[in-house]
């Protein structure tokens, strides 16, 4: 199979997955409403009572980006599980196309959905008074962090979608990913939590990813560590999730489809 064919096949699969996302009005609407509703909720309802040393919107934007990405990953896991429970993957595999194009279609569509949601969070944030740095380099760094994180999370979601026996099981992944950010520095600084929770919050993967964005946009982190240090840990986490998930997804795809 030529590289040209593999690229073309992947293009067809990406188009398919994007079209499927657009035609799932419920999920699409939720994905668009979530960033807006959460932003308004956190800034105007909870924000007044939370003291994070400055305007709460300046604190919360990276946390909401991560939360929405978690929701997006759940959508990806469900999309992969739905495909696997259908005869269509068998048909694809009996055709002379590259097997990886099937997963790549889901990954690229997942990236597109999540980056759209992220752009929405940023847009709404700016609209309600978020004032991040205006220099170009930190922005590029923050965007690179988001893309890396979303890519790793999309592959993890694909692996979960392949592992899940049912669409419902894949759906429960959304719950885990939407809960985890609450026990991180997404919405309140870790030092305000009880000791046990603080330990979790300080060491789970979401925190360095959030802190890297926060540090780049606002000039300081909530943990007191330098942006550089947080970024190194964040990239380490993302790389580990990415490598593990790609390996797991590839293995699962081969084994789940050959029974």
């Amino acid at each position: 199979m030529s590289i040209a064919h593999a690229v073309k096949d992947s293009g067809v699969m990406v188009a398919r997955c994007l079209r499927r996302s657009r035609r799932d009005p419920e999920a699409f609407f939720t994905a668009l409403m979530l960033p807006i509703v959460l932003m308004l909720l956190f800034v105007y309802v909870f924000g007044g009572a939370l003291n994070t040393g400055g305007a709460y919107v300046d604190y919360v934007v990276p946390g909401l980006i991560v939360l929405c990405a978690g929701f997006g990953a759940g959508t990806t896991a469900v999309a992969v599980a739905t495909d696997m429970s259908n005869g269509i993957v068998d048909r694809f595999r009996s055709m002379p196309i590259s097997g990886s194009s099937i997963l790549l279609g889901h990954i690229v569509a997942s990236l597109a959905r999540n980056l759209l949601a992220t752009a929405l969070v940023i847009g709404v944030g700016l609209g309600v008074g978020w004032r991040p740095t205006t220099s170009v380099l930190p922005w590029l760094g923050a965007v690179a962090m988001i893309v890396t994180f979303v890519l790793a999370l999309s592959w993890l979601a694909a692996a979960v979608g392949l592992l899940a026996r049912t669409v419902e099981a894949a759906n429960s992944f959304t719950f885990v990913l939407m809960f985890l950010p609450y026990v991180s520095t997404a919405f309140v600084p870790a030092h305000t939590m009880p000791a046990a929770l603080r330990g979790v919050a300080e060491h789970q993967p979401f925190t360095p990813i959030i802190e890297t964005m926060r540090g780049l946009w606002m000039g300081h982190t909530s943990t007191g560590a330098s942006v550089g240090r947080e970024a190194v840990v964040a990239i380490g986490y993302c790389a580990a999730i990415l490598v593990g998930s790609v390996a797991a997804a590839s293995w699962l795809f081969r084994h789940r489809t050959s029974r």
Binding site: R16, R19, R20, D24, N86, G87, I88, D90, R91, S94
Partner: peptide, 15 residues
């Protein structure tokens, strides 16, 4: 040279 039709129609319901 082949084509496979599985036990369940292998088509994309959303398309």
């Amino acid at each position: 040279s082949i084509s496979l039709t599985g036990q369940y129609a292998a088509i994309d319901d959303v398309l």
